[in-house]
């Protein structure tokens, strides 16, 4: 979990980790691959294969149904929409969204929309899931439920989940908390054993 005050560089860092922004200096290795040396097209393909995204504002396509929205990463990889929605529907069913497959985003609550976004981030089985303030637009209880779902559904042996948040109530879901300040990592705290290391 990546935490810190506004403007400290959390979003910039996570954008670099996700291969969306290119760092001005240094090298970035994600999932065993050095993405700083990749060309743009390679980065796009890398993101498509390896990274799932969960956004603060959900960013669901309003014209697509719940199942279709969740299936987008598969469709982007060339899977036909009909087949992709079947896969997405199965995961949606596992997190209690099975009754809403044909609904449109504007017919869902914020918590439900974020659940769809979680499935969209998982459906193509990425190695890294990047979450930007996933609970910022949700009330405390809904935020807790969403994080529970994210923890249950997303955590897998070969997968990492990176969460940018201001919400201290969800720190307890983290294994490691990285604190940033003025564009630098100030500390990395291990949870829940509270191992602590200072980074200069």
């Amino acid at each position: 979990m990546l935490v810190g005050p506004s403007g400290c560089g959390k979003t910039t860092l996570i954008s670099i980790i996700a291969g969306i922004l290119t760092p001005t200096d240094g090298e970035v290795e994600i999932c065993g691959e050095n993405i700083t040396r990749m060309r743009d097209a390679e980065k796009v393909a890398f993101r498509r294969r390896n990274i799932g995204f969960i956004f603060q504002q959900y960013n669901l396509l309003p014209a697509l149904t719940v199942a279709e929205n969740a299936a987008i990463p598969l469709v982007a990889s060339g899977v036909p929409m009909a087949k992709a929605t079947v896969t997405a529907a199965a995961i949606l069913g596992e997190i209690g969204m099975g009754d809403h497959l044909g609904k449109f985003p504007n017919q869902l609550s914020g918590g439900q929309q974020q659940r769809v976004a979680i499935v969209r981030a998982l459906v193509h089985e990425p190695k890294l899931i990047v979450c930007d303030e996933p609970t910022a637009a949700l009330d405390a209880e809904t935020g807790r439920i969403v994080l529970e779902i994210l923890k249950t559904a997303a955590l897998a042996p070969d997968r990492a989940v990176a969460v940018v948040t201001h919400d201290s109530r969800i720190y307890r879901f983290a294994e490691r908390i990285v604190t940033m300040e003025d564009g630098r990592i100030r500390s990395i705290r291990m949870m829940p054993s509270h191992q602590f290391s200072e980074v200069s």
């Binding site: 996700a18 969306i20 743009d40 097209a41 796009v44 393909a45 890398f46 993101r47 498509r48 294969r49 990274i51 995204f53 956004f55 504002q57 960013n59 396509l61 309003p62 987008i72 990463p73 982007a76 990889s77």
Partner: peptide, 14 residues
Amino acid sequence: LRQFGALKAMGVSN
């Protein structure tokens, strides 16, 4: 634009 941005982030090429 946001939707297109999201699609680009998710790996849809230009």
